[in-house]
Structures are given as structure tokens and as C-alpha cells.
Design a binder for these strands. Structure first.
Lengths: 343, 343
DNA sequence: TTTAGCACTCTCTTATGGAGAGTGCTAAAA
DNA sequence: TTTTAGCACTCTCCATAAGAGAGTGCTAAA
């Protein structure tokens, strides 16, 4: 599909106008509003062509034109001009990050909040997660009776805590001793390596190692760690979600952790760090997202920890701006992660 | 305000019917539907009285009656008969908890999920939080260069982790040594006690103690820990939130952490563990909740850790059932907390 | 190839007229 | 004194109709 420059112009303007007004765009309006040096009839003819190409669509015979999903895809793939975020916006965002507490969780929450505010849509951010869990440090803390708090630190700073129940009460000194042994001998090992070390420990130590291994397997199997969401109410202000049924369907995906993980992992597989993935209207796969678009980026260090950041909004979304914002936030997070967390 | 038995009956039925249908309730319908042994005219007269009492309201002159907020309050305060949750529902819920991973975070998420499903409304659960932060254990883990991961464990199992940057790189052995010293000498101390111990440590140790103190103060100042939310999309299915503006207003409070904390802390001050607080229509204080009711309970052990569980839904809410559910979940959490976390 | 003109189409808004549900009041019945 | 039947009245909701407005496709002229 090859468009003339004039067709590109008209198509871009239709998208632009429709994103602003949420209404079908007519030929006359377009000519008047953008002072086009051609008549509405010409625009009409070109629109007819674009409609043939399935880039535009008429809600009904005598209405203006609306971009199709395919149209949006074509726009994002071919016509969009990536505008960098304004310098002062960039500065404000960066500032907020370096201002905040130096804590991964804070950063991720902040990233979600920034994305939600900048894009006026819903945002999602996953915690950085290593593809392979590499053990770093273990801590055992007696709480009461046979209850022990196990804190597991992975290379890269992922932390998991869990209460475990031993067969009998064990004094803190003994627990510390075991934890130190394991920490010392298994540092930088993956699950396999730890399994090999298992025989070196005494009975209690082996029990602990078993729990540790189970936990590490669990971590490796989960595609993503914690997910931070924000700005869900933003999408409620969009006219396409005025009827709460539509809104419920769209927001439902945010409450179904498994759906969300699916979406993230399946799109992340195709995206490198630094890359951007744009899902428009569910792409035929995600029934719940039929009315939505998702812009996702991957951040972190591909050799150690990566996570995703993204925005979910209506299909009628200012893609250029959203993409720049998502990309920028991803970069900021990448920097922060590699500065503080990298292996 | 003293009601005759017949007035109580009619009032209760109006509430019951309105909760089911979301429509104004007329005298004729009421007589027919509930086979009342009186004529619609009698019901009409009683309704007029109840309207005088400001328990009922007419949306317009010739419409049926709708409970006022005051009416709901009167109902919850005086007429409600607390029905225990059905045995098998209770069993199902308990089962889910003991089935799940033995982990506070899991329990809280599960609690939120159970509440949301059972009440078909939005739910909120706060992590158990001690009024006074009592130090238990400190861990320092070298990551890279001057970056150190600090893991702070409080009595009761609250865990905070934070990256800190030291003035110079310090080997892990030295870090462990300091952490052990502090853990050993400051165990069971509050912030004040730790401050008194500060001179005992060397320069590096004192730096760490300062960071530790800052963190503990922060924890003590925050009214509540993590907040888990669920079921937000449930409220979107209620007819009163069909227009997304209303829904946005209601859900907004869930995204403004500070609002939520305010709400929780100010209501929790008036509630003992085991008690229930019902906020109807924002009670004049919470503008955002004008269309909503909130049922909150406190769980945990008043001497150590407490948290809140609650449900947010439309004012037209089946209070009896919601209250039982919230209370039951609060009890389950109390049990779990006192079994595993108590000081 | 572009444009002016025109007939036509479809939605959206507004007005109109019941149908339906419910009320309050009055006077009769219990 | 309390309850009830009856009745006039009120207000919403819904379907129908008419007109305005915006836009289209087509044709013929520029």
C-alpha cells in the first residue's frame, strides 16, 4: 500500500483531528480547520481511496471518517514522527526520580505515577526481574516458636521473604550459622548449583535448602515480579468508556493478574530493551483489549534484570506523545537499575 | 424517633426492595410483592410518616420512596439483624486461607480478593502495622561499589528494604559484623533505645544507625503499611455508577494513597479490633465518597500489630451481608496474625 | 485532475402524546 | 380511631415524528 503525499497528509490530519475530538471527521471540517489548499470534494475523493485501503472507516453512510485499527497500525508503523519529549518535561521527570527515596519500590511506583499523569491513561510497571534466579544471600530470623522468617536475596537485588515452619524450635544463633553457611557456599549459584551443594549441609540445613530451592524455582517460573498500576481512573474520563460496561471490560485486565502477566510476557518476548511494542485494539488476541491500545517498553539490562513499563488507553490515543513518554521513562529506569542493581 | 413495629417492617422492606432493584419503591408493589396484610393506602400513610422522619425520600412528587442516607444509618444502627455468614461460605473462605502460601502478603491479597468477590464491591486491606516500631534485626548486603542493601526487620515481621550508599566501599564481612552488632545490641529497642546505643558503635556503625533511625521514624509516622485493593471493577457494574463520572469520583479515592490513608486512620481511631465501622455516603466529611458506603473492620492484636479490612460499594449496599463478611475476614486475619506474627 | 453543485442519507435534537406507576386526599367502612 | 376504596393528579419513560445539521457520492464543468 503506497500513499501519495497528499493522502498521507489527509490521513494524518484525520487521525490527529479524531484523537482530539473523538468524533468522525468530515471533509469540510478538515479543509476549514487546517486551511487546506484544496476543496472538500478533493479531500472527499482521497478519503474514499483511504477507505478502500481500509485505513479509514465510516460509522454510517453519511458520517465523517474514523481511523480503523489497521489505520492506526499503519500510522504508528509508517507515518508517526517520533517527537522527543519537551526538555523541561524530561527534566521534571528525571528530577522526581533523583529526588525520591533511593528505593526500587519507590522508583517503580513513581514511574507508574509519572506515566499515568503524563499520558492521562492507565499505566503499568513491573519490577525488574532476572530470567535466571541467581542466589546471593540468605537470612533466617527466628520469630516465635517454630516460625522462622526467611529472607532470600537474589543477585540484582530481588528480595523474597517468607515465613516457614520448622519441625522444632531452633535458636537464632543456630539459624544465623546455617544462613551464613548457605550464603557463603551458594553465593552466585543458580538453583542447580545449590542443589549440588545440598549434601554439604546437616539435616536442618538441607531442609532449609529445599525450601530455598522451591522458592527459587517459583521465582524463575514467574514471568514477572510485582506489578505496579496507576491512573486507572484516567481511562474513565475518555468518552469511549462513558458506558461503564466498556470501562469494566478494559479495566478488568488490570485486576486479573494472570491476564496481565500473559500480556506482558507474550509481548516482552518480542521486544528488546529499548524497544517499544504497540498493541492496538487487542490485535485479535486480547478480547478484553478490543477497545484499548497498549504501549509497552522494556527496561533494564538484558543480561541481568529487565522489567516492563507501559500505558493502557483508548485506541484513540496520541501515540507519538505516549510512545516518547514510555520510552523516556523506560530509559530513566534502565539507568537507575544499572546504576544500583546490576549484577 | 420511635417507630411502630409496622413502620419498622415497611421501612425494612423498602430498604430491602430498593437494594435489590435500585428503583424507587411504591406502596402497591410492596403490598403485592410481600403479601402484606394491609392495603396500599395504609402503606402510603406510613410511608408519608417515614418521609417526615427523613428516613425515606421521594425522587419526585409522584414516584415511589427511596431510603435517605439517614435512613440507611438508622437501618444499620437499629434495625439490622446480624446474620452469620452461611457455614459453607465460611468454610470455603477459611479453607482458601489455610490452603494458600504461608505468607502475610499472600494472605492480604487473598483477603482483598475474597472480600471483593463475596461483596461484589471494591475491597481494601492494609498490612498489619505496629503503632510503635520495635527493632528486631538488621541485615546489610553489599551489592556493588558503595551500594548496600539494608534489610530491616521489625518485631511482628514487618520488613523494609532499602538501598543505601556509603561514603566508601565496605567488604561484606565488615558489613555483616556491623549488622550483627546492631542486631545484637538493639534487639527489642524502639527508636529511642537505638539512639541511646548509637555511641557504642564505630563511625560506620553510627552512620548505619542514623539511616536505621530515619527509616524507623518513617515507619512509625506512616499510619499504615502497604494497602491491597481489589474488585474495583465490581463497582462499575452498579447502576449508580453507570455514568463514568460518578465511577471515577468513587474510584479516585483508591488511587490517592493519601486520601485512603486519611480515611483509614481517621476511622480506625474510633474502632477497636473486632469492631465494625460503617461510613454511609461520606458522612459529610468525604466529598469523594458521597455516592459510596464503606464498611471497615480492624484486625490483628491491639497490643502489637493491627490492620484494616474493608469494602467500598454503593450506598445501596446489602449491609447485613457485607458486615458479616468483613467481620469474618477480619477474624480470620486476626487469627492468622496472632498465630504467626505476634510479638 | 480538481472543483462546484446537488440530491440524498443518516444522526441528533426537540416536541408531542399516551401509558404506567405512584401519590395525596377524601369519604366511607370497620 | 384506624383502615381502606376511590379518584384526580403528577411525573417519568418511551415511542413517534419532524426538522436541523453534517456529510457523502456523483456528475458535469473548469
Amino acid at each position: 500500500m503506497r500513499l501519495t503525499d497528499r493522502q498521507k497528509l489527509i490521513f494524518t490530519l484525520v487521525i490527529h483531528e479524531h484523537i482530539q475530538t473523538a468524533q468522525p471527521v468530515g471533509s469540510k471540517t478538515l479543509v476549514k480547520k487546517y486551511n487546506l489548499a484544496m476543496s472538500s470534494a478533493t479531500v472527499r475523493n482521497e478519503m474514499a481511496v483511504l477507505t478502500d485501503y481500509n485505513l479509514l472507516r465510516q460509522p454510517h453512510t453519511s458520517a465523517g471518517r474514523v481511523p480503523t485499527e489497521e489505520g492506526y497500525r499503519f500510522f504508528v508503523g509508517n507515518l508517526i514522527h517520533k517527537s522527543a519529549l519537551p526538555t523541561n518535561t524530561r527534566r521534571t521527570i528525571t528530577h522526581q526520580f533523583y529526588q525520591s527515596r533511593q528505593d526500587v519500590e519507590q522508583w517503580l511506583k513513581l514511574a507508574a505515577s509519572v506515566l499515568a499523569n503524563q499520558s492521562q491513561a492507565a499505566s503499568l510497571v513491573t519490577a525488574p526481574h532476572a530470567e535466571r534466579a541467581i542466589f546471593k544471600h540468605l537470612e533466617l530470623i527466628a520469630t516465635r516458636g517454630r516460625q522462622v522468617l526467611m529472607v532470600l536475596v537474589l543477585m540484582g537485588g530481588e528480595i523474597r521473604q517468607q515465613f516457614i515452619t520448622l519441625v522444632e524450635a531452633v535458636p537464632q544463633e543456630r539459624l544465623s550459622e546455617i544462613a551464613n553457611q548457605i550464603s557463603g557456599q551458594c553465593a552466585r549459584c543458580d538453583a542447580e548449583g545449590i542443589a549440588r551443594m545440598r549434601p554439604r549441609f546437616d539435616a536442618l540445613g538441607q531442609d532449609i535448602v529445599d525450601i530455598l530451592l522451591a522458592e527459587m524455582t517459583l521465582i524463575e517460573e514467574s514471568a514477572t515480579g510485582e506489578i505496579y498500576l496507576d491512573g486507572m481512573t484516567n481511562v474513565l474520563s475518555e468518552p469511549e468508556f462513558a458506558e461503564s460496561d466498556e470501562a469494566r471490560q478494559a479495566l478488568h485486565i488490570f485486576e486479573e493478574r494472570s491476564l496481565l502477566e500473559n500480556l506482558l510476557s507474550s509481548t516482552m518476548m518480542n521486544t528488546d530493551v529499548g524497544g517499544i511494542q504497540v498493541l492496538i485494539g487487542g490485535e485479535g488476541t486480547w478480547e478484553e483489549l478490543r477497545q484499548c491500545s497498549v504501549v509497552l517498553a522494556r527496561y533494564g539490562d538484558p543480561n541481568s534484570l529487565t522489567g516492563s513499563v507501559g500505558v493502557l488507553g483508548p485506541i484513540r490515543m496520541p501515540y507519538d506523545r505516549t510512545i516518547s513518554t514510555v520510552q523516556f521513562v523506560a530509559n530513566v529506569l534502565s539507568d537507575l537499575v544499572s546504576e544500583t542493581l546490576a549484577v
